[in-house]
């Protein structure tokens, strides 16, 4: 085959391949949606994180603002230390609270940030002091049954 035709076809093939890569990166993947933007780290200690995993979303008002960077057990305080990488575009006030929430009933767990009203903003490496851990279903049911039993016990006591 003619050399120039060969080059043309290979050029078309390589360009098509790169075009597919760009489509995958920007249209299918989240490269455009701040996936690789600059982030700052916030730390929070939870007494229970449930099923929270690395790379779980961090949302504020339902919007994705960052991702969980690491989850580890803190052997000093006996709780879970969660590091979050938050997009630098979204600064949060000092009195922001973090809670472990679940999307839907069976959905994945994520961290919800509720902004406070402080003038000062959280900086890289700061800790979020106001936290609420995951709701454990077994404990909730246990509490409910306990309350129920207590209520009926109280009712009987009142009847006497």
């Amino acid at each position: 085959m003619e050399r120039s035709t060969l080059n043309l076809w290979v050029g078309v093939f390589v360009l098509l391949g790169f075009f597919a890569f760009l489509v995958l990166a920007f249209k299918v993947g989240n490269l455009s949606a701040g996936g690789n933007g600059t982030t700052y780290t916030l730390i929070a200690h939870f007494d229970n994180i449930g099923q929270l995993k690395e790379r779980a979303p961090v949302r504020s008002a339902g919007v994705l603002v960052g991702r969980v960077k690491s989850v580890r057990f803190d052997p000093v305080h006996y709780n879970a230390e969660v590091q979050m990488a938050i997009d630098t575009k979204f600064p949060f006030p000092k009195d922001t609270s973090a809670s472990v929430l679940t999307s839907g009933i069976l959905g994945e767990q994520y961290i919800g940030l509720d902004a406070g009203g402080d003038e000062k903003m959280l900086k890289d490496g700061d800790e979020i002091k106001l936290v609420q851990g995951a709701v454990v279903l077994e404990r909730l049911i246990g509490q409910f049954l306990f309350n129920k039993a207590q209520d009926s016990g109280a009712d009987k006591g009142a009847q006497k």
Binding site: A25, K27, V28, G29, N30, L31, A33, G35, N36
Partner: peptide, 10 residues
């Protein structure tokens, strides 16, 4: 786009 991660998937 929310589910596909550039580094980990693509």
């Amino acid at each position: 786009q929310a589910a596909v991660d550039f580094r980990h998937d693509i």
